[in-house]
């Protein structure tokens, strides 16, 4: 039996008919075309599928789509646009924090959750917040630098 669900995605309420076994990741990518969120390991280890679920980062491959009914989801597409990128997106670009780019959407979402709660994180806090997001290309140094710099940029723009 399919369920009709309503999810607030990137600020906009959407409805979908989903089978119980459909994951939130499949719903986002296959029904709604939000392919920015990636499928990496399909078992909650790599973080490529990270989205904000009611403001908290979760692995969307481990959330049943039916469970998103009535909840709010933010994906990388909801962070910024080409004209107005999120400070994190600009910082990732400027710091060369992206190589193949496959981990970047999940990294950005985890980093956003961190900076929303803690605009001035220490390096250790950044590393802990990103521990669930694996990168196989760059190493994490530039990613950590980018998050730090985005935090500073966000803070100064608030002032």
């Amino acid at each position: 039996m399919a369920f009709t669900i309503k999810v607030k995605v990137n600020g906009e309420w959407k409805t979908a008919d989903v089978e119980p076994e459909m994951t939130l990741l499949e719903l986002l990518r296959e029904q709604w075309g939000l392919t920015g969120t990636k499928l990496g390991c399909d078992e909650g280890d790599c973080g490529a599928c990270t989205v904000l679920f009611d403001g908290k980062p979760v692995n969307s491959c481990l959330v049943l789509a039916v469970r998103a009914d009535g909840h709010e989801v933010v994906t990388v597409e909801g962070l910024g646009t080409a004209e107005r990128p999120h400070p994190l997106q600009s910082a990732f670009e400027q710091h060369g924090a992206v190589q193949c780019g496959f981990c970047a959407p999940g990294m950005l979402i985890s980093a956003k959750a961190l900076l929303d709660a803690n605009p001035e994180p220490t390096e250790q806090e950044i590393r802990e917040a990103l521990a669930g997001n694996l990168c196989r290309c760059t190493g994490y140094t530039k990613i950590v630098e980018a998050v730090k710099s985005a935090g500073r940029a966000m803070k100064s723009s608030v002032k």
């Binding site: 939000l34 392919t35 920015g36 969120t37 994906t75 990388v76 597409e77 962070l79 910024g80 646009t81 080409a82 990128p85 994190l88 997106q89 990732f92 670009e93 400027q94 060369g96 992206v98 780019g101 970047a104 959407p105 950005l108």
Partner: peptide, 12 residues
Amino acid sequence: PRRDTIFQVLGQ
């Protein structure tokens, strides 16, 4: 910065 990075970070 690389040409494709902006598209990567936008998820596009």
